[in-house]
Design a protein around this nucleic acid. Structure first.
Lengths: 226, 226
DNA sequence: GCCAATCCTGGCACTGGGTGCCATAAAGGG
DNA sequence: CCCTTTATGGCACCCAGTGCCAGGATTGGC
């Protein structure tokens, strides 16, 4: 029994790593919070780099025991993910809000752009977060597992719209593709300090559509044969 | 100097984990080979599962020391990847062989289908390999790093065809999308013991094209409003 | 004010992947 | 037979992650 099985997810998915307790009104109070730990860790990552920072150091800097750290985050790799489950809900809601007369891919593109709008005061933090997730190899690798949940949100929307089931090839293929396009856009955003994320996402989606419509070839031909 | 830096790739990419020596005509002979180790390991994985098999066990089963194992594979996660670098070359060659009058996305689709044709005698092995890579969470996560190299092949082809540079948004977005579609197709292939991989890849690519062209919406509407 | 129930903390010991170091085994060539 | 080259594998070590369990801190009941 005990708490939900954490650690390396074997075949079970969607491990929700709730910290000690959601709302404790009875026993000993928590020594810290996910957010506090995240801030401490981000500081160390910025100073020494992700790989060079050990969990012991993070725990020490936060004034907790190493063992306790692992009650707040199932792994060091999970630190940058913030309140990811909530983000999924937000994306789901945004997709549901798309009027049915808008074509599926247009709806997804619009939702994507809208969903990734970040408050100006939050941009710096979001950049640091995504820089970790997408640029630190261990974190990018780990992100795969989180992205699976994200793709499922897209697949479910496509399925609902087109009369498929979410597990079928078309919704899954589209979900994979949309995730891919998003990552590509994010990577360009990280490269360019003044770029607008929404614009990049919009452009990337449109360019993929253009490519499938042969409009990328035409443009190349007009530019002179190549 | 020593050998190339292995282990956790920090920021450097494309670590080619050449085993001890490519062709040793002088010193002591190698005790085993990548392929032999792979076979031994696959046997253990089938019996106990990937996670439950330790490197010690693999090494012992292969009759080598644990330390030596890590000279053949930079990590346990790299075992299922076979001769991946060669596969990349094969895909590159197949793309180059596409006549220029075929539109970019059609060329990619055809190359993809062709590239993933597997000899009938090799299908079982390929299934086991891909089952590990795509279904074992730790391996799927690790695959991200290998997939980056694969995406680059696509991005370079798109760039050459459309007059972009491979790093630009359009080639990168397309590459990400194509990889995503491929993974989706592979996952369905693994689910269905009699499915044809080429057909799934072809279908998945066409369905994504259809989605962008609004043909998925139309089909849904014809099916009755939903 | 004390006891019980509750919940959280953190130390300890252990597993398992991965690495640097280095002595040594095995091969060929002079 | 020694010398050079190359591969092996033992040893010690680092770090992430986990099960176990003895506490510490808090609320509520009596």
């Amino acid at each position: 029994m005990g708490s939900a099985k954490l650690g390396h997810p074997q075949a079970d998915e969607a491990v929700i790593p709730v910290p000690p307790q959601l709302s404790a009104a009875v026993g000993r109070r928590r020594a810290t919070s996910r957010q506090e730990l995240e801030e401490t860790a981000f500081g160390l990552f910025a100073a020494r780099g992700f790989e060079a920072t050990t969990v012991d150091e993070i725990a020490a800097a936060a004034g907790i025991g190493r063992r306790t750290f692992f009650r707040y985050f199932p792994s060091k790799n999970d630190i940058p993910w913030g309140a990811f489950e909530l983000e999924l809900d937000r994306m789901r809601a945004r997709l549901r809000a798309c009027p049915p007369q808008v074509a599926v891919m247009d709806a997804i593109r619009e939702a994507l752009v809208d969903f990734n709008r970040v408050e100006p005061t939050m941009v710096a933090l979001h950049r640091r977060r995504m820089e970790l997730i997408l640029r630190v190899p261990a974190l990018f690798a780990h992100s795969t597992l989180r992205f699976t949940a994200w793709r499922e949100v897209i697949a479910e929307f496509v399925a609902a719209r087109t009369g498929h089931r979410a597990g079928q090839l078309a919704p899954q293929a589209i979900a994979h593709a949309v995730l891919g396009v998003s990552v590509a856009a994010y990577e360009h955003w990280l490269d360019d300090p003044v770029a607008d994320l929404g614009e990049l996402l919009d452009t990337a989606m449109r360019q993929l559509a253009d490519a499938f419509a042969g409009r990328l070839d035409e443009a190349a031909e007009r530019q002179g044969r190549r």
